[in-house]
Design a protein around this nucleic acid. Sequence first.
DNA 1: TATGCACCCTCCAGTAACTGTAGGGTCAAG
DNA 2: CTTGACCCTACAGTTACTGGAGGGTGCATA
Lengths: 131, 131
Amino acid sequence: MALKIGDLANATGTKVQTIRYYEEIGLLPLPARTEGNFRTYDKETLRRLSFIRRSRGLGFSLDRVRELLGLADHRDWSCTAVETIAREHRKAIERKIADLSALDHELAQIIEKCGHGTVAECGILEALSPS
Amino acid sequence: MALKIGDLANATGTKVQTIRYYEEIGLLPLPARTEGNFRTYDKETLRRLSFIRRSRGLGFSLDRVRELLGLADHRDWSCTAVETIAREHRKAIERKIADLSALDHELAQIIEKCGHGTVAECGILEALSPS
DNA sequence: TATGCACCCTCCAGTAACTGTAGGGTCAAG
DNA sequence: CTTGACCCTACAGTTACTGGAGGGTGCATA
């Protein structure tokens, strides 16, 4: 029932190189090896990788993921720190949305200025030029 | 009236190293040098740098900026290409906003699951774990 | 004249999170 | 015994800068 790196990759939608990268930076433990030097994994590592990928999918940085994994190991601790990480991440995302929305409005206004003529008269380029 | 690199930096809110980087990748022309080997710039380069920074501020990649600068040099061309670049950029930003909004909703749901107890019971970590 | 200080120079390394490639080994099936 | 799928290591490249080491320039002041 030993899993190879490709099995983990398939099961989690992760590239093989990415799994090796996670191992390199210490997010995944050094796995056992077969006689032929192939990495072998157990279900626990598969769960850990799934956790990492789900967290990454939600936009957490690898450093945050590392913290979350560290917290998850202390089952008797308060989960306040977990909540804090999640809330701050959400705040950061909302800031990003606000920034992008402002950009979107600005772009909309600039695009409207296009006179569909020549570059020389282009309102878009003019809007990008120094006032 | 020759401008030094620090003058350009001050006038555009750009770090000196960033200006040298733009020169290195060919976004800014190789400037004249003083006897003491200091870069000297004219108003035209200042305008070019301002254009770059304004475009970057609107989220255009350096490759797009390069295209826009290239188009701006052909004053008699149609500005259709300029409009296309701007519209596609806007589309990309709107996709990003949609993605982040989806993330935001998902995070909100996950955060609600926190029971404020121990890590072992934490609904956030559970939501991050493989189903 | 010496000194201090702000500014300039080049070159190189590091950031985040992978992705791709070169050059080779392992293993089961046909 | 060969083919093909899979695995291995090691290293370079991506984006757009940012920071630092180690040293030179130029102007004003004591």
